[in-house]
């Protein structure tokens, strides 16, 4: 998953959801995720997934890339669904659909909200130690993904994946080890950099999350509609 890709969507998007307040988008996402959690049938979950797909198209997000990104975590829920409810049946499908819709909700949120606005909002509710950890992690992931990508390319060029399966696994393990060590060092450095740049445990986005406009109404209508549908279906 390319984080910069979502950053770009969030920053350059011009839809009603992009223009809605951060708080409304956050509430909307929380309501949808709660609807996903309380849903007990396939119909409700399919309805939510369809609604999310329509929303993705309406706010002009690239649906194919968003779906691709949503399928990554579904791999892990597939493992869970198959082992918990063997053989693959109704309950397994429920688990998969729930994961899919929950992930889609978060992807829609991060595609429509610049991360500084999200962290700025979270900073009002969470202790600063948690926002610090989340923020440093988020920034580090950017750099680490790029590094992992560069290391992988160099390893391929230098024949690191030749010489059989065992050798490839060995080289890949050392690469992961290197990235983990680097991530510890990086998070420490990034924390210093944030402090030097005046960070005091709170992100200021330059935009108040309490300023509402007419664009917010659409997200609330969608949220209420989803709750009604989940109850009625």
């Amino acid at each position: 998953m390319e984080i910069a890709f979502f950053d770009n969507l969030a920053v350059n998007g011009k839809s009603f959801l992009h223009n809605a307040s951060t708080l409304s988008k956050f509430i909307f996402t929380a309501i949808i995720i709660n609807c996903v959690i309380i849903s007990r049938g396939i119909n409700e979950l399919i309805f939510i997934a369809v609604l999310q797909s329509v929303l993705i198209i309406a706010i002009r997000l690239p649906i194919k890339r968003i779906f691709m990104a949503a399928f990554n975590p579904m791999f892990f829920s597939l493992v869970f669904a198959v082992t918990k409810y063997p053989p693959f049946g109704y309950d397994s499908l429920l688990v998969l659909l729930k994961t899919f819709s929950a992930v889609l909700s978060v992807l829609i949120l991060i595609s429509a909200t610049p991360f500084t606005e999200l962290f700025s909002l979270l900073g009002h509710f969470l202790p600063s130690i948690i926002t610090d950890a989340l923020f440093v992690t988020y920034r580090s992931i950017f750099i680490l993904i790029q590094q992992l990508d560069n290391h992988l390319t160099i390893m391929k060029i230098r024949g690191g994946f030749n010489g059989g399966f065992i050798n490839s696994i060995k080289n890949f393990s050392s690469l992961l080890g290197l990235v983990i060590i680097r991530s510890i060092d990086l998070s420490e450095r990034m924390y210093h950099i944030l402090k030097i740049r005046g960070y005091k445990g709170k992100i200021y986005s330059g935009k108040s999350f309490l300023v509402f406009n007419k664009q917010d109404i659409v997200s609330y209508i969608l949220a209420v509609g989803t709750i009604m549908a989940v109850i009625l279906l």
């Binding site: 500084t116 750099i143 790029q146 740049r197 200021y204």
Partner: peptide, 20 residues
């Protein structure tokens, strides 16, 4: 790369000023 924090160039340059 380690010190650029904002989601856009503008936000990054404004980062310290907002913090202070």
């Amino acid at each position: 790369d380690e010190q650029i924090i904002g989601p856009t160039v503008w936000d990054d340059i404004a980062f310290s000023m907002r913090n202070y």
